[in-house]
């Protein structure tokens, strides 16, 4: 890469009390890329996502975004730099309607581009348009995931963080969602950092990938390389072809 990466995570360590969840993690995401982070349950994937957002804080190392050091910034100010996320468990607002959830996503610009952006989200996920006045909590899992991603997109992010978007969803829905991500990347040049247990789908989608084991990055490479790697195949893919 000739230019500096959009997101640069350097030697980051994160603790929960005495438990060390991240142990010197180095990850970088360049503009226009889809990067996947794969790893087993409890490897520290969600911790990395949340550390980028400042809760929990990295106890050492630096995280920079578009040239700004964001390691110590408050969470809401990190978000204001146009990083958006669809967090683990989706975290949509259950008593608010689909439309209101999307409006919450557009809080940063005080709804200035709302009408325009919401149409884009509807093109991407037509299902959401049908459910506009339904309460978030009553949506199906797949619809909730679409809403969570849609809400993140409403912030006009430069970087989209996705934490296990395929979790608990039927294969057909997973395909729909991954297609939408690929589409966004291709047409809008959206940069995506994706965390997945579903390694096969994630690596097929991503340009590059990292493997996280017990809070350390043990392997990295292009999506194709990792898919072909015998170790990766043995650990994450054999029998796990979702």
């Amino acid at each position: 890469m000739s230019t500096a990466p959009l997101l640069d995570v350097r030697n980051v360590e994160t603790f929960y009390g005495n438990i060390q969840a991240l142990n010197g993690v180095n990850v970088s995401v360049s503009e226009g890329e889809i990067v996947a982070l794969i790893g087993a349950n409890g490897a520290g994937k969600s911790t990395l996502m949340m550390t980028i957002f400042g809760t929990p804080r990295a106890s050492s190392g630096t995280i920079s975004f578009a040239g700004t050091n964001i390691t110590q910034l408050p969470t809401h100010e990190i978000a204001r730099l146009r990083i958006a996320q669809s967090p683990e468990g989706r975290r949509i607002f259950p008593r608010m309607t689909v439309l209101e959830n999307l409006q919450m996503g557009a809080s940063l610009d005080k709804l200035k581009y709302f009408d325009e952006d919401v149409e884009k989200v509807f093109t991407l996920f037509p299902r959401l348009k049908e459910r506009l006045t339904q309460r978030g909590g009553t949506l199906s899992g797949g619809e909730q995931q679409m809403l969570s991603i849609g809400r993140a997109l409403m912030a006009r992010p430069k970087l989209l963080l996705l934490d296990e978007p395929s979790l608990g969803l039927a294969p057909l829905i997973v395909k729909q969602i991954f297609d939408a991500i690929r589409e966004l990347n291709r047409t809008e040049g959206l940069t995506v950092f994706l965390v997945e247990q579903n390694a096969f789908a994630a690596l097929k989608l991503a340009h590059r990938g990292y493997v996280l084991v017990n809070g350390r990055v043990t392997m990295s490479g292009s999506g194709k390389e990792l898919l072909a790697d015998p170790e990766v195949r043995a650990a994450y893919l054999e029998g796990g072809r979702h």
Partner: peptide
């Protein structure tokens, strides 16, 4: 926005912060 942020806060504080709400 402020009133909507109140309701969102009631629902999920962490999600609020990551949407840029103080």
């Amino acid at each position: 926005p402020v009133g909507r942020a109140w309701e969102a806060l009631r629902e999920d504080e962490i999600a609020c912060r990551s949407l840029g709400i103080n």
